[in-house]
């Protein structure tokens, strides 16, 4: 039986915008198993990114419980959350979000500087992460010297550097051409299959969603559909 890595219990989120209340998530409960590959879909404003932010501890729910990697995130201070993120969760963004002043190597090394590692150990991690994404030969290039697909691969290497259990990807192929998008998806599939990473991908693209094991459809902050793609005919 699979062990859950994520448990959401009656989670709601309310934003106040002027006099109006916005409910991106409304009494949402769900469980995601360790090693799963989940596609999070839904129209704009359905709460996908809010859910991703809650799972990464970047945001806090208005009501309900969020348990990730066995930790109730509500009980952590912002400092503890930062440390917890560093140990358990990594983000992959649509716009790559590499620091332009740093080389690919330095970008990947950045989260490792928060860990008690020697310089040599950091180097081993960085090189390994860059080798996994196939960019070891371009480690001393700055982001402006890389293509969009290469930048996203460096961003994935950065996400892998700390060896997190959970990868949260917010439209990772949204800014890429079809070929690069295919490469990135192949990489994410390999990370899930070969390295056992739990991956949650926010996407609008059905092709991306087809790579996942499970498809969650959000609509107006509630789970409208939960499809297990492993048992769907392809």
């Amino acid at each position: 039986m699979s062990e859950p890595i994520i448990e959401l219990r009656h989670v709601s989120k309310v934003y106040h915008k002027g006099s109006a209340d916005i409910h991106p998530l409304d009494d949402l409960s769900l469980t995601i198993d360790r090693g799963d590959f989940v596609a999070l879909m839904g129209p704009s404003g359905s709460g996908k990114t809010t859910l991703l932010n809650l799972l990464g501890g970047l945001d806090t729910p208005t009501a309900g419980e969020v348990l990730v990697c066995g930790q109730d995130l509500a009980g952590l201070s912002s400092r503890e959350l930062a440390r917890w993120r560093c140990d358990h969760v990594s983000y992959i963004f649509q716009a790559y979000n590499l620091l332009p002043v740093l080389t690919a190597y330095q970008n990947v090394e950045l989260p490792l500087t928060l860990l008690p590692l020697s310089r040599r150990e950091r180097r081993e991690h960085v090189v390994q992460a860059l080798e996994i994404v196939g960019l070891a030969e371009r480690m001393y290039h700055r982001p402006d010297e890389l293509s969009g697909g290469q930048e996203q691969r460096v961003a994935i290497a950065r996400a892998l550097a700390c060896d997190p259990e959970l990868l949260l990807a917010d439209e990772p192929t949204g800014d890429l051409d079809a070929h690069s998008a295919q490469e990135i998806m192949a990489l994410l599939i390999a990370l899930n299959r070969d390295y056992g990473k739990t991956i949650i991908v926010v996407t609008h693209d059905p092709k991306v969603a087809r790579a996942a094991h499970r498809e969650l459809h959000l609509e107006k902050g509630v789970l409208a559909r939960d499809v297990d793609l492993r048992h769907e005919p392809t």
Partner: peptide, 16 residues
């Protein structure tokens, strides 16, 4: 501003 958000997302604390 965005880079600061990235730093926080990858584990840097507010203090950092």
């Amino acid at each position: 501003t965005r880079e600061m958000g990235v730093l926080k997302a990858i584990g840097f604390s507010d203090g950092h």
